[in-house]
Amino acid sequence: MVDLSVRIGDITLQNPITPASGAFSWEYNDVIDLNRLGGLVAKTICREPRLGNPTPRMAETEAGIIQSIGLPGKGIEYFVDHIVPEYARFKPPLIVSVSSENTEDFAALAEELSVPDVDVIEANISCPTRNATGGNFAMHEEHTKEVIGAIRAKTNKPLWVKLSPNAGDIVSIARAAEEAGADALCIANTFLSLKIRTDNFRPALGNKFGGLVSPALKPIVLRMVYQVAKVVKIPVIGIGGVTKAEDVVEYMLAGASAVGIGYAGFRNPTALITIIDDLAAWCDERGIKKVTDLIGAVKDDDMEMDTLVAASAGV
């Protein structure tokens, strides 16, 4: 039987399957055994109670959904007192996602969340729908460096940083986060999107813009994970379009140490458990003893030609 455990810095996950933040909450214990997951990822918490964005918050598209939730929550005090204990009942490490629009507040929040039952702080510096314009720290190298540096100074918890696929050059942003003290990188958040209704000419979402969630994102995010994993030393968690065990394998081959899953759990509430079982079976069938052997194992050493050379060679 394959050893599915992976290390993300100082944290061991019993398998590489985690829910993506925002797409999961302890209420899923109604339908799956949360103790089987690699980690538990709480919904992003902000300082003040927030109702979130206007409805409708979701619209279907040809290849998935766009959604704009707006980080609703009851604020940090309620979170620490009431939500953290809901997760603490379960064995997997608790990864707490946090967001702010202000560097000092972001760092202070991370400090206040550094309580014993929280295992990892995930700095969500990339929510595309937190404000109406889609702007966030992870769009810029300098902003990323500044905010992650400030958070790092205020917490000793493992610090994972969730990056944006909407940034022009995610590799530079990833480097900036690593230099500022990130322990791991979550790649990526949702893609900033728009849907306009043709019956009334209005944007389909109450917040106008939303984040695209779709299996169609997988090849794009996989490319980002591949590019980033080549240049950073810290672990990468691949998040985007995973619906089956082979998708996990693909992300790991590209260099990810674990994956985050959102959409598949919406569509099939038992999907995360099925993917864990299938991943074990996939490895066992191929005699793979440790799932970590897959990390970065893509066979591409003989493919280091640049695109111009490839084009002239007719490839």
Binding site: A23, S25, E27, K43, M58, Q67, I69, F266, P269
Partner: peptide, 8 residues
Amino acid sequence: VCGFGACY
């Protein structure tokens, strides 16, 4: 979307 109270 989710039906479980997770996605809001």
